[in-house]
Amino acid sequence: MSGQLLIIEDNAANFYMMRFLLEHGGFTVMGAETGKKGIDAALRCRPRAILLDIQLPEMDGYAVAEELQRHPELARIPIIAVTSYAMVGDRERILAAGATGYIEKPINPDTFVAEIIQYLSNDRECDKEKQL
């Protein structure tokens, strides 16, 4: 599995840790520490998928997901929420805002890459179905 992934994450350690795991999994990773920068990066680079934190400064993850949906050229890019928000309804809320996947922090470093690959393959199957 390869491709460019965008991680929107304000915590540098977390970004570094995830990038490290994903690059070892064969992905190209670019990052943005705010929602706005993330959207700009997405528009510029059209990543294979976007890993989105929710607790972000200025513009939170929900708003970012909704904004990404508003851009037709970005609407088809899968968004995987990676969040420490574990309150009831968090998952449902972010899925409703446009995310296609949800991974809870703290992540399991042993299964993290596999989970991402799983989401992307699901998404590809969806695309295939849509093309058919």
């Binding site: 915590n11 977390n14 928000y85 574990a86 922090k105 703290p106 992540i107 470093p109």
Partner: peptide, 20 residues
Amino acid sequence: ATMSHELRTPLNSIIGFTGI
């Protein structure tokens, strides 16, 4: 909610790097 997030964020790095 904040506590949940604030505690988990550093823990995420600890667990993640330990795993790596």
